[in-house]
Structure formats: structure tokens, C-alpha cells
Design a protein around this nucleic acid. Sequence first.
RNA 1: GCCGGUGUGGUGGAAUUGGUAGACACGUUGGAUUCAAAAUCCAAUGCAAGCAAUUGCGUGGGGGUUCGAGUCCCCCCACCGGUACCA
Length: 951
Amino acid sequence: MKYDFNTIEAKWKKSWVESKLYKVSNESPKPKYYVLDMFPYPSGAGLHVGHPLGYIASDIYSRYKRQNGYNVLHPMGFDAFGLPAEEYAIATGVHPAKSTSDNIAKYKEQLANIGFSFDWSREVRTSDPSYYKWTQWIFSLLFEHYFDLNTNAAQPISELLDLLADSGTAKVNAFTTNNKSVSADEWKAYSEKEQFELLAHYRLAYRKVGYVNWCAALGTVLANDQIKDGFSERGGHPVERKAMTQWYLRTTAYAERLLEGLKEIDWSSSLKAIQQNWIGKSKGATLFFDVDGHDEKVEIFTTRADTIFGATYMVLAPEHPLVQKIKSQNESKSVADYLNYVNTRSERERMTEVKEVTGVFTGAYAIHPFTQKRIPIWIGEYVLMDYGTGAIMAVPSDDDRDRAFATKFGLEIIEVVDKSDYPDATAADKLGVMINSDFLNGLKVKEAIEKMGTEVENRGLGKVKINYKMRDAGFSRQRYWGEPFPLVYKDGIPSVLNLDELPVELPHTEEFKPTSDGKSPLSRISDWVELSEGQQRETDTMPAVAGSSWYFLRYMDPKNDMAFASKEALDYWQDVDLYVGGSEHAVAHLLYSRFWHKFLFDLGYLPTKEPFKKLINQGMIQGVIEYLLLTKGDNGENVFISADKVGEFPDREVAKIPVHIKYVSDYGSDSSYLSYEGIQSFIGWRQSYSKAEFVGSGGTVKSGSLLSGSKEGFKMQTVSEVGKMSKRYHNVVNPDDVVAKYGADTFRLYEMFLGPIEQSKPWDTQGIEGVSKFVRRLWSLFFNDDEQLELSTAEPTKEELKILHQTIKKVGNDIEKFSFNTAISSMMICVNELKKLKTNKVAVLEPLLILFSSFAPFASEELWEMMGKTSSIHEATFPSFDEKHMQEDTIEYPICVNGKKRTLMTFPADTTNQQMEDAALANEDIQKWTEGKNVLKVIVVTKRMINIVVK
RNA sequence: GCCGGUGUGGUGGAAUUGGUAGACACGUUGGAUUCAAAAUCCAAUGCAAGCAAUUGCGUGGGGGUUCGAGUCCCCCCACCGGUACCA
């Protein structure tokens, strides 16, 4: 029988659905294993060949784990809220709910074609009210909790209220932005609004005025990672800083635990490094400087308190609240001018013109806490309001930026660290000996930092403090297609709704455009916003990270209406054992998920501290972008030049025009070109070039017809470049097309055979024939020359057992290591070997087929059935290997002289080292090299090699 | 700048963790089969010299450790990713 993948795949796709083969139970005596893929955002473009890479890897692993006796949870769902669906709605009028569900249907079909073992009965969609009910509920919990530093965990706000009523802030030890102390009496005397405002400094979900990245074109606030070089990642629109009242999550409260947790999880070092950098922990001190003639103090943060004797001036961030209070009359105008200037500068300008120093003197002076000298207070753009305290002591001698600033404005520089022993050291190296520094003189920098820390605390000038770069996560978006907030306002004070009032459903509307005043489209639906008794709803929605921060928990118990997941389900599945996804989520998604997880852990809902035990970043499959080269003729007309002919037009300016890859012959190879027919398709696609001239090799085409040469010989060479696979470059390869041509099994094997899973690589189909050949060769082992199934029940030979057991061992080990390309190569070796031996024995082919089944679920299932099996191969047990079959009778040794291989000798496996040494020395080929020299040493490494050292 | 990673034939990539560099596959060349093609099968294929046996060179570059280095150490280069007036 011929290998007819179309029929086989259609048959089993249907059969597996009917038999519910991949349905997973929460009750099983087997050990659990949870394999998770990062769920996709269902975009209109559908899947391209890059998406399934990680899914195939995790699917192979899931199947392998099942065959090894685990109860494997391997679910899939959709991250269905987000900007693109809304942008699409604005452009076309198609409601996001519709386009999203259409896209999901398309994705599911594409995924089914590839033969994944997802349990679709557990599918989740973040835009589904039964799902976001719980997203809203978790948000309400965040609102109702604060971070207690005594327990180092989240605690209910009610406990904080008790403390405040009992003794004010005195006994509160919380992670907070509140820095004023309040007595119990004061607290009780507070109005409702005042109380609310104080509590906002404690809550894990709170509202504050913050500087946000406002994108006017998109009409929404963007997170830092949605911005590239000052422009929005989507659409490339300008982004500016704007003060807005927004919801925030107090992720900074968990900074230390997020950092600590990294130690116990198995993630790549680069991913951990990215998160570490993002959290950005640094140890230093906060210090107070009195302002001369004012009742104010300036608080600064520094990691180099040791250099304080070199502090010759101070700098405040332009937004710093003290600026208005301390500026002198004389400088009032120049300060105002400077602040105006700063406000007009966009985020982008601030980023690109980093090297330019700007600033202005406030006219005020601070008192140096050690020398009591008066030092000037300046304002400078280079000091950021939201890092540290928004103010610095400037030490021009040991900080490059301070030095540049001091030089430009002629401020004093005092050297305080003698670095003459370390000429190449930078300030960051913290090397050298203290000078001009009173009681620190003679100390090494690191000692001085320690000493200064204690000194500052003893004198009551400040505190040793840990600081983090990480900021609280902005959690408001002024968009329609997201989760509404589960709260109502009364007199401007929000309160969260109870669980029985959830979900707050997203109301239907056909008006998606953001309003010009920065409010969400929801604000237009007044009968939804305005509630009885003067209450209003929040009209912002949550960002896309909300739904994806906990979806992996919902899969454990997706239909539960009483809880986000039952305690039993959570206790059984615990956490994700293996998470596979792209590194583009290295910060946002993975950090917020860890934050939510830790929070829910604190509340006792979860049994584990970390959500994802092991994580693998699959590489990106890049596309090849094909360009035609365009230049202008003498009269300004369009002339395309074949890439190999560019040399003939040395003086012309050449532009690259991307060509849809479906018109390109030999796509992806160096010799890719457009044929005569390709040109016809191209000008049909790009009408504006229909009159253009195409100077190809073997002929010229103008206005679509041949001027010279022949249709057959005509070639326009294209320029190929590796880049993103994207609609924009017209180079998206749809997996459906590959599956249709080669079958899903070959597609799966090929993506895995391409190279290590973590590596990025351009898509090319050059090697796919080899993999396709492998599948057919394996298939042919089961059939005789007349294409009839013919299997033997004879005992396998020693040789057959050897290759089989070697392969079982290698494939098992490689899957454990996620080295799928080498697992496939060892199966290829096995099939080639068995083909040579003309093996058709059941005892060999049956275990081989099980190895193969994780990679190629369709063909293996079909052959399995043909072998007379009644249950699925995907429920079979992974074979075990026995070393005894793998032992060699004889071993081939390379014989080296001074480390260079000179010959090969074969010895029986039981030959002693001495016997081998003697034989090697007696070998003719070796004697040529040892003749006339002294043999100093002979090294025999059993089963490896023999090295003879001569001189 | 800082942090992380990568660098091996014409190409994708292997290398038991210090022990035969280039497995497996693509491509190329030659051959078989065929009226012919596709498919299939066989052989060769790191580079250089040589008819050949063989010899020399060879894992980004330079140095080192070792009987032996793609693998370990030091210095440098290139590329990719992250991040940045972070005090």
C-alpha cells in the first residue's frame, strides 16, 4: 500500500475526535505532568510556519510523557482581547467579537491539520465572560490587599484598617508609597475620601496620576514594552508623555520575591538575566540634604554614599515637587522656561538626544550634611522623577553624567577616589582608595561604602536602602476590547464589586474609535456607565496581559463556575512542568504571571510559589524576503534589473521592491528568480508597474511583452534577505500549504529536524524532501515489493536488536533533552540500517513505531492499526532498552601518535589494555611514525582511543 | 556602555561533555533503472597537493593548559537578542 497521507490524516483526525483520545481527566492514579504552550493571539493573518514550531516540540514531549505513564495536561486556548482586533474593527466595522471568533475558528482548523494532542474540551478564551469573570475577581482581590513586610506577603486591607484604627501608621510595616505618619485619631478624623487616598498608597491595585506613554493615534496608553524607539510597536505612531490618572498594580512590592524565585526555576540564563535586569536591584542609601533658608529637605538615593565628599551640587528631576517651592525669585523665569522646554520634548527626543546636557539653576542651595558647605541645587533632564527619589547628589569626579554636567555649567569638581592603581577602571568597578574624604581617607571604595552606610544611619542622615528599577505596572487602557474593571465609583471613590456581581460584561457597541479626550469608547455608552444612586462604572479596560496572567490555572478546571479552579484541581496539577514559547514575552507576560501567581499563593489559593517550573524559548522561524531591484530609466520610467545584472548599471540608484513569494521560483535559494510567468503575475499584482521594463538575463520584458530573448530563457534574479515572516514583506508561508503538499507528519518532522528548538532560523523547504523520503522509507519497511503488508514474527537477529536498542536509548534521551533534531536523525539511521537488513519483523518494527509516533502521529497510528492493534498507538508504552543488546563484540580504536590519528585497529571487546598497547606498537603504519624515536608513554582509553607519545 | 547568547564543509546542523571533527540531511557530481522523465537505488563529496598510496592544513582570530582542545583558561573580533541619562 502506498503512503497516502491525505486519506490517513483525514481518517485519524476524525477518529481521534470521536474517541476523545486526548481528553484528560483530573482524576488519575498516574503522576501528573503539565505541558503548556503560550496561547496565541488569534490575528487575522492566521498561523504561519513559525507558530507551530513550539507547539510541535511540546506536542512531541506530551506524547512521550503519556507513553511513559504520565497523566499529561496539554491544553490550548486563545488570548482573545487586544488591540489588533479593535484596530481592525475601526478600519472595517467588523465587531471585534466577530473577527476574533472567526479567527479562532481558522486557527483551530489550522492546528487540527497538524495533529496536536490538545484537549480541546479545556479550551479557554480570555474574552469569554465566564473566563474574565475570574480575571475581574483576581483584580478585586488585588484591590483588597496590601503587602505586609512582617509576613512578606499580601494581607487583606481589613487588617490594615484595624491597625490604623488602633494605632495609626505606627505599627504598620507595609510596602507603601505613603511617607507620612498618621495617628489613630487623625485617621479616624479623616474624611472617606482622605482615608481612600491614604489606602491607595498601600493597595496592590490602586489609582494614581502617573506619567504614561500616551499614543494619540491609537488613543491609548501603552506599556513600555509596546514601544520601540519612541514609536508604538503597532503602527509606528509617535508616543508622548502625559499625566493621567491610571490604575496600577503594585508589582514593585514583589520585586524581591520575583528576583528570589528565579533561583528555583529551570529557565535559560538569558531569560533570567532579562528579568533580573528588568527588576534592576541595586543597594545604596537614601540621604537627606537640608535646603538653605527653607524648611524643606531633599531626599536623594545613591549607590555611592562613599563619594559624598565629592558632592558639589545637587540635581532635581524637572517634575520634582520641590522645584516650585525652592526656586528663587531671580531664577523663576529661567526655571519656568526650562520646564516648558522639557515638556515640549517628546519621549523620542529625550531618547535620541541622550548625550546632550541640559539643565538650569534653581537659585537655591542645599547644606552638605558632612561639610556643612552650601552647594547649588540644579534641575536637569537627566535625573528621572520615577527612579530613586527623583533627586541626586552630583559627584562629578566619579559619575560620567555629573562630570559632563559640571563641565558644561562650570561647577566644582573634587576628586575623592584615587584610582591611580587602576588606570582602566570605571566608576562602576568600585576600585581605588578614598582621598579628600575626611574620616574615609585611605579606605578602599568597597570598605568606604560599608562604613558610610553605618555612618549615615548612626547620624540619622538617612538609611541604607535597596532600590529597584522596576516600576509598578500601568493597568488601564482607554480601549474597548478588553476586560471592564469590576468596580463602581461613588463621588469619585471606587469600590470593587462582590463575586456574585461578576462578571461585569463588556457592553455591545459599534463605536470603537477612541474619544479625542483620551477616554475609552465605553464612556459613550452612558446607560452602561451611569448606575443608580449616582454611581458610575470605570470606562477604562484592562490591558491584554490581564487575561494571560493566570490562564494556565484555568485549564486545570476550565468549566468551574464557583471558583477560578477548584482546590482539588489545583492540588492535583500544581504548576506547569514545561512551558514552551517565544522570548518576546520574556518580560511582560512572564513577570506579571509570576506576580499574580505569587499573590494568589499568598492568599492560600495555590500550592506553588512559581507558575512555570521549566521554560523553553523556541526560536523564531524567519522568512526570506524577496526583492526586485528597481531603478529609473533616462526618462524617469521604471526599469527593473535582474540582480545578476546590477554590475552593468554602476551609476544607477537602486531601490528594493518586495515581491510576493508565490511568484518567485526557487524561493529562498540564492538563485531565486521570477520567470516570464512570474513577471506577468507580478504586474498583475502591482498594476503600477505594468508598463515597466524588466531587464533580465536571457531577455527583456516591457509592458508585459517580450522585447528580446525567449520566454523560456528569461529570468529576473531577485535579491533574498532573511527577515521577519510578515504580511508586510509578502513572505508568509502558511503551514496548510506545506501540510497539503507533504503531509502533517513530514511537516512536523521537518520543523523539528531544522535544528535545535531554541535557535532561530530562516524557513526554507530545501531539506523537506529528505524528511519526506524518511517517512516513506519507514513506511516501506512494512510492505513488500508488491505493496502488500508483509510482517514476520521471527526472532530478531543480534544486529537488528543492536540498532533497535541503540535507537530506543538515543531517542528517549534526546526527547528528554529537547534535542528533537538528533532524535530524528537517529531514527533515520535506524531505518537506513533496517532497510539494508531488509527487516520486516514485528518485534523490531513495533517498538520503532512507538518511538516514531510522537513525531508522526498519523502515519504511525495507521501502521499500528494495520499491525492489528485495537487501541491507539498514542496510548502504547514507550519501549525500554537493554544495554546487553548494544554491546559490541569488537571495538575499532584510532591509534594516534602525539595526538594525531595515524591508523585504525579493531580489537575484540575483551582485549586487555596491555595487549592493545603491544599490538599498537607493533603495527606497521605506526612504526613508520615511531621509528628512531623514544616512546615516552602510551595512553589507552578503553573503548575510545590509543595515543602513543614519542620524542 | 552594560547583561545574555552565538560563531564548525557549498547549506541546515552533529560530536557520548577533554578522546576518530563534520553524524543525519540538503545540495552537487557520476552511475544503475527508464523510450524519456519523475520516483527509486548505488557510489563519491571539508580544503589543498598528488595518477595513487599518502601528506599537509582545518571548528571566527591570537595565546595558554594537556599525551590529546570544537569542548577548559586568558585576550581580541564579528553577529544576534535584551537594556540604558537607573544615580
